[in-house]
Computed example of a mutant assay.
Amino acid sequence: MSTSGSTALPDGGLKSPGAGLITLDPVRTALLRGLDELLTGLAARLAAPEVIGPPLLSVAGLARLDYFRNFPHLGVSAGRFTPEALDGLAAGAPPAGLPLEPTGHLLPSATCYGLLLSLEGRDVGEDGLRLSASGRCFRNETHYDGMRRLWGFHMREVLYLGTKQGALEHLARGAEFIEEAAGRLGLALTRAAADDPFYDRGGSRARLMALDPVKHEFSAPDGTAIASVNRHRNFFGERLDIRAGSHGPAYSACVAFGLERWVHAMVLAHGGPEQALDQLRAATATATATTMTTTTPAT
């Protein structure tokens, strides 16, 4: 399938606005949007309705979740320039060194945090709750590398809260979906345990995590992790008083997709963005045809 109808860009295309920042051209944008639509198939399969999470996260709320013990380096603060700083900027002064007022909020570093904080004090019931959301996430990193490691990126997550067994089943079905989607897209992924828990690295929970990993990543051949399955145990249920009926504090789990990283993996696997988009469209068309064949009643 040809992609020659894409809008032409100026000579040289679109340049990066800065380290860790990127503007996607029309082909890569179509690839990202199409991949997100395909990956929402997990939400449809698990009957997880779409929601939109908050654009900022409370520092106080994140502190209760050990965020600043586990991920102190990732947080990107949301600050305001003081009136004096605004006067300086208007006069052409460089922004470096101008005072900022704290707002008590961070930009999200993962989609699930906003959803979990929004459910504080709630009872998700005996049957549990599933939600799907996609949002922009932001992380301070030690270095940035093309679409593999960005300051700001899109993350799709499918979150579950409920029973311990329900959380395990959620992750099993999520892992099955990742491998199925990768196969349809012509991606060769490897699965391995990760070492970035939601828990304090220095305590007994960290030692438990070493024996019983709570996160597994699915990586492209160049080592780029493009998806993960994350088992939180009942950590968030306890900290946020989220209950699962008579089962007590809710167990939670999420399946996460880094969309720019999926774009990177597709381009790597198929030799270029146009070829990757053609592969995505072919995979989507095949899936649609299969669905219609299996759902159309016999006459």
Rank of each mutant, 00 (worst) to 15 (best):
Y199L: 15
T23S: 09
G245K: 06
L240G: 11
P297Q: 02
I242P: 01
P249C: 11
S204T: 14
Y67A: 15
A194R: 10
G12R: 08
H264K: 13
L159P: 03
L65P: 00
V263K: 05
L211S: 12
G114C: 03
A175P: 05
R191V: 14
F153T: 08
P10A: 10
S219N: 08
P99F: 01
T82P: 06
L159M: 09
G174V: 09
A175H: 03
S16P: 01
L86Q: 10
V76W: 05
C137Q: 06
A269D: 03
T3K: 09
D212P: 00
A283F: 00
Q275R: 15
A265W: 11
S132M: 08
R281I: 00
A192K: 13
R80E: 06
S132N: 11
A283S: 12
Y251A: 02
A19L: 07
H264C: 02
P54E: 04
R139Q: 10
L280A: 07
G223L: 05
G186H: 09
R173E: 14
E141H: 08
L100D: 01
A265V: 10
T291P: 00
L168E: 12
H264Y: 12
A192V: 05
A206Y: 03
A253E: 09
A192M: 03
L9K: 04
E260Y: 04
R191Y: 04
Y199W: 15
E50R: 10
D200K: 11
A43F: 04
E157I: 02
T3G: 15
E180D: 14
H154C: 06
P221L: 02
N230G: 05
A285Y: 00
L150D: 03
D11H: 13
A43P: 03
E50L: 13
T142G: 14
P108L: 00
P197F: 07
P273T: 02
L117I: 06
A133S: 14
S204W: 12
E37A: 14
A285R: 07
A210I: 03
E126Y: 09
R261G: 03
G162C: 10
I242V: 15
G125A: 09
F198D: 14
P108M: 03
L89C: 04
A110D: 06
A8G: 11
L21W: 12
R122I: 05
